[in-house]
Amino acid sequence: MHAVIPYVIAGLLFALGVYGVLRRRNAILVLMAVELMLNAVNLILVAADATIKSALSGVQPEAWAYPVPEPRAGAIFALFVIVLAAAEVGVGLAIILQYYRLRRAVVLDDVALHEHDHERVTG
């Protein structure tokens, strides 16, 4: 296995996510691009998890650095990142829907950052 393949794929996915976040005006599409970036990070974590065993073949294992006998925690990190992404999408979509309920729009350019209308009561 050539490790450069998943790494380069992850790099391209992250670049596409950055492009999408900067390009899109719709908030939901921005969230989709953020999902792409998070998946790129996950892919890097899993690829490092798969290659670190053979990369560390000559290194003396130390007890404090590896609390478990098999030092492969990339999958765990990937799971944590997936849970974080789920939480982020839930709260982000709640914010987007509340904003849509207030303004009837999901366009990010139209968000008035300096307008104090947090006292507004929605029905």
Binding site: P6, I9, N42, L43, V46, A47, D49, A50, G74, A75, A78, L79, I82
Partner: peptide
């Protein structure tokens, strides 16, 4: 890709 890389649960 995760499956190929051996992270089945992920």
């Amino acid at each position: 890709l995760y499956l190929v890389l051996g992270a089945e649960l992920v």
